[in-house]
Amino acid sequence: MKKGSKLPQTTKTRDEQPHAKQGNKQITEKEAGDVEEMSSPRTPVIYEIVRRLGDEEMDRPITSLWWSGVAAGLSISFSLLAQAVLQSHLPEASWTHLVTSFGYSVGFVMVVLSRQQLFTEITVTAVLPVMANLTLASLWRLGRLWSVVLVANMAGTFAAALLCTFTPVLTPELKAAVLDIAGQITNHTWMEMMVRAIASGFLIATMVWLIPSAEAAQFHVIVIITYLIAAAGFMHIVAGSVEAFFLVLNGHLGVLPMVTDFFVPVLIGNIIGGTALFALIAYAQVMKEI
């Protein structure tokens, strides 16, 4: 080697450069990126995702909201159908309800993953932007969204009930199972219906909050949350309206009792659970950070 010549120095790639120290160890920039990627999003990030989703929903044209809501009402009817299929093939036992409750998740998976408009989802997504900017214009946008989606959901569930009642789409065994499951909504008092609906509204709002960070596990989040609603006997205004309309159309429930003893308490409960409880708590978590 010639005098004065320098030894060749190896160059480290960017990924090999030490980035930060953890105790006595160093991690590379690539590893630091992996840490960032694998970390759960902070609560303000989840809040902002849900809030922006609510803003987008309130800005959609009425026609889009309507047909998306009708589609959600039709899709959610498959929750009742799936439960009936399971019940008609299972023996009567103490565990039967725990198994048939898995069928309840089918309609919700269809609705949520296809981004159809479901009233109980928007009780939290649409309320967050209103709470962040409480004005008459925001309240008008919220009322517009809620009313269009709720009526559209009811139109979809009523159409599904009509189809199941006046066409041979269901076998006699399935129809009997549907009537048996639907009849359970008449076994509760007004107050029981409302309190059970509060729990359901809170759980659906929780599901909406969990989905942004669930990524590939969204399916499992939807199934677990909605299974719990069915297994515990909680009340959901949209899924339950399929059962209520089916009972009315088959002469097992009057229109007035359906409105006063089912629709009113369950609607109030779902709104309280999704809005007054969950949305307020979600906003309170981040109001000093946003």
Rank of each mutant, 00 (worst) to 15 (best):
G4P: 11
T10Q: 15
F158R: 09
Q117P: 00
A230W: 07
F119S: 00
A230Q: 07
A217H: 15
E121L: 02
T171D: 15
I185T: 05
Q117W: 03
F246C: 05
A152N: 02
E16Q: 15
M58K: 12
E31V: 06
P212R: 13
E57A: 06
G156H: 01
I281Y: 09
L179G: 05
Q17I: 04
A132L: 10
S75K: 02
I46Y: 10
G54I: 04
V238F: 02
A72G: 00
I204V: 05
G107C: 08
E16I: 08
R196N: 03
Q22A: 06
W146L: 01
G254C: 08
P265N: 07
I268V: 12
F119T: 00
A155D: 03
I224R: 09
V238H: 00
T186I: 02
A231K: 05
V169S: 14
T120A: 01
G69A: 01
T206L: 04
L280F: 11
E48K: 13
E48T: 10
Q184E: 13
L163G: 11
I62Y: 15
T275H: 01
A155G: 05
A32C: 04
M235H: 02
R42G: 05
A230P: 13
S64N: 09
L145R: 00
E29G: 08
Y104F: 11
F246A: 03
S114E: 04
L86R: 00
L174D: 14
K21T: 07
V70N: 00
M38W: 08
A216N: 14
E215D: 15
V221A: 14
V50P: 06
T63P: 06
A159N: 02
M1Q: 15
M38C: 05
C164W: 08
A279R: 03
T226K: 09
A177N: 12
